[in-house]
Design a protein around this nucleic acid. Sequence first.
DNA 1: CCTTAGTCATTTTTT
DNA 2: ATGACTAAGG
Length: 735
Amino acid sequence: MTRYNPAVTILSMDFLAGLNPQQKKAVQSDPGPVLVLAGPGSGKTRVLTHKIAYLIGFAGVKPYHILAVTFTNKAAKEMKNRVELLLGKSSRGLMLGTFHATCAKILRREAEHLPFNANYVIFDADDQRKITKQAILDIGLDIKQYKPGSIHAVISQAKNNLTFPEDFSVNTYRDEVIRRVYVRYQNYLLASNALDFDDLLLWTAFLLEENPAVRDRYARRFEHILVDEFQDTNFAQYTLLTNLSVFHRNIFVVGDADQSIYRWRGADYQNVLRFEEYFSDAQVIMLEQNYRSTQIILDTAMSVIDRNPTRKPKKLFTMRGKGQKVILREMYDDREEAVYVINTIAGMVAQGKAQPGDFAVMYRVNAQSRILEEAFLTAGLPYRLVGAQRFYGRREIKDLIAYLRLIRNPKDDLSLYRVINTPPRGIGTKTLASLKTIALKTNMSMGDLLLALAIGEESPYWNMFSKRAATNLSRFGRMFSLWITHRDELSPLEIMDSVLDDTGYRDYIDDGTDEGKDRWDNIIELRRLAGEYREQGLDAFLETVALVSDQDTIEDDVNAPTLLTLHTAKGLEFSNVFIIGLNDGILPHSRSLEDQEELEEERRLLYVGITRAKNLLVLLYSLNRNVFGYIEPVEPSRFLADIPITLLDEGSPGFVIQQSAFKRREDKWDVKPLSSVGLLEKKYKPGMHVVHAQWGEGVVLNTRIQDEDEIVDIFFESVGLKKVSAAVAKLDIRK
DNA sequence: CCTTAGTCATTTTTT
DNA sequence: ATGACTAAGG
């Protein structure tokens, strides 16, 4: 292990310029495990990039020996740019990418040790759902009872925990069903020479665990490993990291447990604790100075997150000054929320207080974007929408990608299903069914059979089909085989163009309508992207396309408000932030209400949203909400009650605050029943005059604490003696 | 084999 | 309210 020479510290100045003491400490940390606990806006990307630059430029580590992993391509790209800015070209060879992309590369290189080929394709979320559905149907089960989505979620969880189908433990009948689906699902993937997202991690972790020779090769290579957003790692990723760092033990991780919002994806912020235990000699460095937000915004964030009981306290501070108070507003419904957002933005822009691009509107679920979009459209204002109907989710894009995937990997039955009759060429369900059965009988993949049919009547398989079917299949097979023949000599763009030409795709999609025009425009955009992969080739193109995240699709150069979910907002910052739909059932989401840990995650989600704001934070909730077309009354979010009124501007409603006594105690109850027993104090005293919303004025006779609640005996003028729960009833104390 | 009308569930969050 | 999926006609 190398120790850096302190005598040449002066040379490190470049990489330390402009850093605060804690950041410097992190960048200059000795070799060995390092855990950086970085609050929002504390400059963690800075620390990571400077650390890399420091390692290469000062400590003399070869870029080839460094691995840096992130969760989104956007983060990876940004880091790469910033490292290059610090070092120039000398960062070449550095392995920097997302977990998934890094794994994809390793797997392609090491495919010989694994049950798939190097030209495997990556199945996206849509594909995953489809094959889960197919697997359930194959077993003969009802997809209404066993929803593909929820079954796949369990499979995904299993994979994230490095559980293969054969290790899947069965305790209930449902488990047994899932196990069987999982077996089929995985077989389907392998038969198609395909991997899903989780497989990328699963197989890499498997490879490193089971193959010491390979593991050592990588573990020796990566003298330094750096990890961004460490709190978002799941077990597979954690295992990956511990294996890769087993030799040099120079693992530098940056994270913030308070920003852990991917539990449902298997992420486990406890990995932060695990890290400290596993690497007991780890240096721990805290980054607590926030450079992003005003004090008021920071205080608001703290007031929300502080209620999470299991968190380690962090004291965030800023030098930015108090700033503007938070605006909290009650709206009639979600429609009005949208109008308010637009009016506020338009107003501030008109007054020259801000640019349209300085605004972000954040929400819990993608469905909420629709009303906003409509409102922007009616107002005639441009906006940029992140995620939701992403580019790569468009039908025409998926079609083209499926063609390319099939050409790259003829075993990809799923893609074949998609394209074989798109545009229509007379290959319907019947023909398709016979293609499948005969493929099964002859022990070939459908793609291979199709290729065998390409030669026409000479083919030994020709007579197994009806004349009509054989003719149509053969015609497509000829096209298909032609593409494959030229696959390796053509660039991705050229392959794409031959597909477009040979299939007459343009005529199919561009039917003269506006929609058709749009679709064709999307194809043109895809062509442009493909054009960038002349050097890297088809594999790289398909891989990037499969692994783009929502965040990656944000275009920076648009001067318009950004509409995005709270999840995609992580890692970003905006001068002015709106968070809409702050209602119970939305944030916290109704599916998380039952579970304490999920409630905590919802709270973190709000925390993430709040801490995106640099200057102005606007929080909106509504009294009513459109649910499946019906207007329903809704409650304000319980989290609002935790924000001190002193942080809110005068226009903010006060009644939310009045409810806080109730909300607060409810939270406490959820959280720590034991410790809060003694903490609950009586709010009322005998002799006190109170006003009840329904029964009017009364006088307190007696009061006691019982089951986390205060039971008050009150004599009302209107109805006489009543026992009242302080948690349920709204009582005003009369002075 | 493709279009159409009717039924139905749908709302987390995403690499 | 909207879209995905299923069952009947061109």
